[in-house]
């Protein structure tokens, strides 16, 4: 029974990782950007929920209604300005720019909100849970996060495969120049992909802020997990990212089962094993690496 619990907990944590990672995966797939500020964006979303949302007289549970659209807009604008300028130069510049953003954000948060931990207080809702058996209770909130993660990935998949804009996003990620020759404004498409990525990372940031305490520096550690989930699943594949997140969550829980100190180690072992055996990731195509 104890194993079942471990796996279930792993799946729950893992689907959060997938939610957190899908924006990273999308931005890499479409723009070939590795956004090193991705984790910090989630943290900023958390701070936005705590400090901006009360001004709208909204209950904290509903903060995503305000934060997600703001982040989508922010993602579009950041892409069309700073990130596009960097892409126009070269990939290394782009990496440096996102790294710079990450450093600036962390320090600004530290300056404005101090190093104290924060969390988004949704009151009694967080403590409601489902007693499955004598040894297993699942919090409703983690189930909600899992449902949100699956819904987000599913809608994103449908959007990419069924809509005209989704088709253009795939075309641009295949061949940017050929897409231009088809009349596609690839910069606008980049903006849209970025808007989606930022919207999803805002959701992840809020979910994180509700479930645990976070700090200005929380972005870095979470970025590592998101990055691992993406690589395990295969870069550019959304289902891969979901599977990658879940496998990462499960191996972390298995690690933690032996000793709490082994939690991160468990995930890292899986990550290294995948890199060694199947470097393109479980769902990745060899040619993409």
């Amino acid at each position: 029974m104890i194993w079942v619990n471990t796996v279930i907990e792993g799946v729950l944590v893992g689907s959060f990782y997938a939610l957190f990672a899908c924006g990273l995966s999308l931005m890499f797939g479409v723009m070939k950007i590795i956004n090193l500020a991705h984790g910090d964006m989630a943290v900023v979303a958390g701070y936005t929920a705590i400090f901006l949302v009360p001004k709208f007289h909204l209950a904290p549970v509903w903060s995503f209604v305000v934060v997600v659209p703001i982040f989508a807009l922010f993602g579009y604008v950041l892409q069309r300005t700073l990130l596009q300028k960097a892409i126009d130069r070269d990939p290394f510049t782009t990496l440096l720019v996102t790294f710079g953003l990450s450093v600036i954000i962390e320090n600004l948060l530290l300056e404005i909100y101090t190093a104290n931990g924060q969390s988004i207080d949704i009151g009694v809702l967080i403590s409601k849970s489902w007693q499955v058996s004598s040894t297993l209770t699942i919090s409703y909130f983690s189930l909600v996060v899992m449902a949100v993660a699956v819904a987000v990935l599913l809608s994103l998949q449908l959007f990419l495969s069924r809509t005209g804009t989704g088709r253009q996003i795939r075309a641009v990620s295949d061949d940017r120049e050929a897409a231009q020759l088809c009349g596609t404004n690839y910069r606008h498409i980049f903006g849209i992909a970025s808007a989606i990525a930022f919207a999803t990372v805002a959701l992840a940031g809020i979910a994180y802020g509700i479930s645990t305490e976070f700090f200005p520096s929380s972005g870095g550690a979470n970025l590592l997990f998101a990055f691992e989930a993406v690589v395990i699943g295969g870069i550019g594949s959304l289902w891969g990212t979901l599977l990658g997140g879940v496998l990462l969550g499960v191996s972390q829980q298995l690690g933690a089962h032996f000793s709490p100190a082994y939690q991160v180690l468990g995930g890292n072992i899986l990550f290294l094993a995948v890199l060694a055996v199947r470097p393109q990731g479980l769902f990745g195509k060899r040619t993409e690496m």
């Binding site: 795939r170 295949d174 061949d175 120049e177 050929a178 897409a179």
Partner: peptide
């Protein structure tokens, strides 16, 4: 070189 979108 045609430049088709290979995943489409």
């Amino acid at each position: 070189g045609r430049r088709l979108f290979v995943s489409l």
